[in-house]
Protein backbone atom coordinates (compact mmCIF):
# COMPACT_ATOMS: atom_id res chain seq x y z
CA UNK A 1 0.00 0.00 0.00
CA UNK A 2 1.22 3.48 -0.83
CA UNK A 3 1.21 6.10 1.87
CA UNK A 4 1.14 9.87 1.45
CA UNK A 5 4.47 11.54 0.71
CA UNK A 6 5.69 13.78 3.51
CA UNK A 7 8.31 16.45 2.89
CA UNK A 8 10.02 16.76 6.27
CA UNK A 9 11.54 20.13 5.38
CA UNK A 10 8.17 21.67 4.61
CA UNK A 11 6.30 20.19 7.60
CA UNK A 12 5.72 22.58 10.51
CA UNK A 13 4.11 19.96 12.77
CA UNK A 14 0.77 21.78 12.94
CA UNK A 15 -1.29 18.55 13.10
CA UNK A 16 -3.88 19.78 10.59
CA UNK A 17 -3.41 16.55 8.64
CA UNK A 18 -3.73 14.47 11.81
CA UNK A 19 -7.15 15.99 12.47
CA UNK A 20 -8.19 15.67 8.83
CA UNK A 21 -7.47 11.95 8.49
CA UNK A 22 -10.62 9.95 9.09
CA UNK A 23 -8.58 6.75 9.44
CA UNK A 24 -6.39 8.01 12.29
CA UNK A 25 -3.46 7.34 10.01
CA UNK A 26 -1.27 10.28 10.95
CA UNK A 27 0.59 11.53 13.97
CA UNK A 28 3.15 14.23 14.54
CA UNK A 29 6.34 12.60 15.81
CA UNK A 30 9.33 14.81 16.64
CA UNK A 31 7.54 17.75 15.05
CA UNK A 32 7.06 15.98 11.73
CA UNK A 33 3.91 14.36 10.37
CA UNK A 34 4.35 10.60 10.23
CA UNK A 35 2.14 7.90 8.80
CA UNK A 36 1.32 5.44 11.57
CA UNK A 37 -1.94 3.95 10.31
CA UNK A 38 -2.78 0.57 8.92
CA UNK A 39 -4.59 1.69 5.86
CA UNK A 40 -4.87 4.80 3.80
CA UNK A 41 -7.72 5.36 1.38
CA UNK A 42 -5.84 8.04 -0.60
CA UNK A 43 -8.76 10.34 0.15
CA UNK A 44 -6.46 13.36 0.04
CA UNK A 45 -7.95 14.98 3.15
CA UNK A 46 -4.48 15.38 4.64
CA UNK A 47 -3.19 17.04 1.47
CA UNK A 48 -6.18 19.40 1.43
CA UNK A 49 -5.70 20.36 5.09
CA UNK A 50 -1.95 20.93 5.04
CA UNK A 51 -1.10 24.64 5.03
CA UNK A 52 2.41 24.20 3.61
CA UNK A 53 2.00 21.51 0.96
CA UNK A 54 4.19 19.16 3.01
CA UNK A 55 1.92 16.13 2.68
CA UNK A 56 0.72 15.01 -0.72
CA UNK A 57 -1.11 12.11 -2.29
CA UNK A 58 0.26 11.92 -5.83
CA UNK A 59 -1.28 9.73 -8.51
CA UNK A 60 0.30 7.69 -11.25
CA UNK A 61 -1.69 8.28 -14.41
CA UNK A 62 -1.46 5.26 -16.65
CA UNK A 63 -3.04 3.52 -19.57
CA UNK A 64 -2.54 -0.15 -18.98
CA UNK A 65 -3.96 -2.17 -21.83
CA UNK A 66 -3.17 -5.46 -20.12
CA UNK A 67 -5.52 -4.50 -17.32
CA UNK A 68 -8.96 -5.08 -18.79
CA UNK A 69 -11.08 -3.78 -15.97
CA UNK A 70 -8.67 -1.01 -15.12
CA UNK A 71 -8.53 -1.97 -11.49
CA UNK A 72 -4.79 -2.27 -11.29
CA UNK A 73 -4.82 -5.81 -9.92
CA UNK A 74 -4.16 -9.25 -11.31
CA UNK A 75 -7.22 -10.91 -12.66
CA UNK A 76 -7.29 -14.24 -10.85
CA UNK A 77 -8.74 -12.77 -7.72
CA UNK A 78 -11.85 -11.36 -6.14
CA UNK A 79 -12.08 -7.79 -5.16
CA UNK A 80 -14.55 -5.00 -5.25
CA UNK A 81 -13.92 -1.68 -6.88
CA UNK A 82 -15.24 0.34 -3.94
Amino acid sequence: MNIPEIDKDKCIGCEACVDACLRDGLEVVDNVATFVGEDCTWCGNCEAACPTGAITCPYDVIYDTSDECGCGHDHDHDHDHE
Binding site: D60, V61, I62, D64, D67, C71, G72
Partner: peptide, 14 residues
Protein backbone atom coordinates in the same frame (compact mmCIF):
# COMPACT_ATOMS: atom_id res chain seq x y z
CA UNK B 1 -13.39 7.24 -18.56
CA UNK B 2 -11.03 6.39 -15.73
CA UNK B 3 -10.70 4.00 -12.81
CA UNK B 4 -9.15 5.37 -9.66
CA UNK B 5 -7.46 2.59 -7.74
CA UNK B 6 -5.90 4.02 -4.63
CA UNK B 7 -2.90 6.02 -5.88
CA UNK B 8 -3.35 5.09 -9.50
CA UNK B 9 -5.54 6.69 -12.12
CA UNK B 10 -6.02 4.27 -14.95
CA UNK B 11 -7.32 5.76 -18.16
CA UNK B 12 -9.48 2.96 -19.42
CA UNK B 13 -10.44 4.47 -22.74
CA UNK B 14 -8.09 7.20 -24.01
Amino acid sequence: YIVIDHSRINITDP
